[in-house]
């Protein structure tokens, strides 16, 4: 018998008014996989991520997470189920300290029963936050305001925040967007580390990086699934070459 996929999208469509951003996309991911989704701008990658992470409901189709139908649940239920996402455009709490950003994110998982206790009693969230900041290399700037950080550091902070709920499925939307080559290298290392103990799906534009780190690559084009295979298969896929690789980097 085949292993139950961690997440399965069945016939997902999403329309914005008359515009079809996703058309009957069916996909599933194995637990522990490191996969990437690529495709030209406007292909529907972020839309698919928003649907997989519960911030957007599909117009049609179903989402099954670990075998349970989660379609249409509010986003916070997705997070509590074990799905977490980082945004394509950096999204932090700019006026709060770096530490507080991660602490607030971590607190979401324990706050239910302790919602009115004193913050200082929630020692475990403090420690979770500190450990995550060490993991992404931001422990040195923990007391600065998040809004003051350099772009690359804010991206790393976002990953720490996405990790704070201890997700089993992590969706990273263009984590290296706007990063320098050095920052990108650090981020790749970080992502590879994270992928060792959970399922990670990336949306990325940096083709070399995608083909280098992913076990599996999925190509979206005009809201439809164009190709799905190993990096080697994708490199040699005639359709992909025609619509995407041939045009150079996006």
């Amino acid at each position: 018998m085949m292993e139950e996929p961690i997440i399965r999208a069945e016939g997902i469509s999403r329309r914005f008014g008359g515009f079809v951003a996703l058309r009957e996309v069916s996909l599933s991911f194995r637990s522990g996989e490191l996969a990437s989704i690529i495709g030209p701008n406007g292909a529907g990658k972020s839309t698919l991520f928003n649907i997989l992470s519960g911030s957007l409901a599909p117009t049609d189709g179903r989402i099954l997470f670990e075998g349970n139908d989660v379609t249409g649940l509010p986003q916070h239920r997705f997070v509590h189920a074990g799905i977490s996402k980082s945004f394509q455009i950096t999204n932090v709490f700019p006026q709060l300290s770096v530490h507080e950003n991660v602490r607030v994110a971590a607190q979401a998982m324990v706050a239910g029963k302790n919602f009115w206790s004193r913050r200082s009693r929630l020692i475990e969230t403090d420690e979770t936050a500190r450990a995550l900041l060490v993991e992404v290399g931001l422990e040195g700037v923990a007391r600065r305001r998040a809004g003051e950080l350099a772009h690359g550091q804010q991206r790393a902070l976002e990953i720490a925040m996405a990790m704070a709920c201890e997700p089993r499925l992590l969706l990273l939307d263009e984590p290296t967007a706007g990063m320098s080559p050095e920052e990108t290298k650090d981020m790749v290392q970080l992502i590879e580390g994270l992928a060792r103990s959970r399922t990670v799906i990336l949306v990325e534009h940096k083709m070399k990086m995608v083909l280098g780190i992913s076990q599996r690559v999925i190509v979206l084009h005009h809201g439809e699934l164009l190709a799905d295979g190993t990096p080697d298969q994708i490199r040699n896929d005639a359709n992909v070459k025609r619509v995407y690789l041939g045009q150079g980097r996006h």
Binding site: S55, Q75, R103
Partner: peptide, 23 residues
Amino acid sequence: DSPFGAVIEGIRENENRARASGY
């Protein structure tokens, strides 16, 4: 002082981020 007090400031700062964090 409570977790509630911390997260409402997060909501003020960035409501989408708070939602994506599981609130």
